[in-house]
Amino acid sequence: MSDARVGLRVVHRRYVPYGHAHYAGGLVDGAYALGLFGDVATEVCIRTDGDEGLFASYSQVRFVAPVRAGDVVEVVATVTRVGNRSRTVEFECRVVCRGRPEAGVSAAVVLDPPLVAVTATGTVVVPGPAPGGAAGAVVTPL
C-alpha cells in the first residue's frame, strides 16, 4: 500500500540579501542553505501531518556550487519515504537568478537552467496520533 504523502513537493524562493555575505566575492556560508532546508521542511510537515515537526538529521549534504549575495534561490523539498513518525526528504537549493555586478551595480540575470548549489537528504519527525484522534488533520482557516 503506497502512502499519498510520498512525492509531495514543496518549493520556496528567496532573495539572498547582501547582509548575508560572509566571505570574499559575496559568498554566503553553507549554513544559509541548511536554514532554508529547515524552513521548507517545516512546511512539508505541516502539509503531511498538520504539525511543524522537528528536523532529526541529515544523512548527506553536498555543497556543489556557490551561493552569493544577490542570488535568488529556489529550495525544493520532496518527501521520499514515510515511516510511522519519520519522513525522509530530499532537498535541493538552486540558484535561479544571479547578480552581475561587473555589468552594473544592480544588474542580474536569470539562470536557465538553474545552478544546483546544495543537495541534501534529511529526516524529520512528527508527533504520533493524539489519543482518541488522528494526527495530521487538515484545518480549514476561518
Rank of each mutant, 00 (worst) to 15 (best):
M1V: 07
D3S: 12
A4V: 07
R5C: 09
R5F: 11
V6I: 13
L8Q: 10
R9W: 03
V10W: 02
H12S: 01
H12A: 02
H12E: 11
Y18C: 13
Y18E: 13
Y18W: 15
G19E: 15
H20C: 09
H20N: 13
G26M: 06
G26E: 12
A31Y: 15
A33T: 02
L34N: 04
G35W: 00
L36T: 00
G38Q: 14
V40W: 01
V40H: 03
V40T: 08
A41I: 07
T42Q: 15
T42H: 14
V44N: 03
C45F: 11
I46G: 07
R47A: 14
T48P: 00
T48M: 06
D49S: 07
D51P: 01
E52R: 10
A65E: 06
V67I: 15
V67S: 08
G70V: 12
G70D: 10
V72W: 05
V72E: 14
V73Q: 00
V73T: 11
V73S: 03
V75F: 02
V75A: 00
R81Q: 13
V82H: 03
G83E: 13
R85Y: 09
S86E: 03
T88H: 04
V89H: 08
E90L: 10
F91N: 04
C93D: 07
R94I: 06
R94N: 05
R94P: 01
V95P: 09
V95G: 06
V95R: 01
R98T: 09
R100W: 10
E102D: 14
A103N: 09
G104S: 11
V105H: 15
V105A: 13
S106C: 12
A108N: 06
V109K: 09
D112S: 15
D112A: 14
P113L: 10
P113K: 05
P114A: 10
P114Y: 02
P114T: 07
L115F: 00
V116P: 10
A117F: 04
T119R: 09
T119D: 05
T121K: 02
T121S: 09
V124S: 10
V125A: 08
P127E: 15
A130P: 15
P131N: 11
G132T: 08
G133H: 11
A135T: 14
G136M: 11
G136V: 12
V138L: 09
V138Y: 11
V139G: 01
P141E: 12
P141G: 08
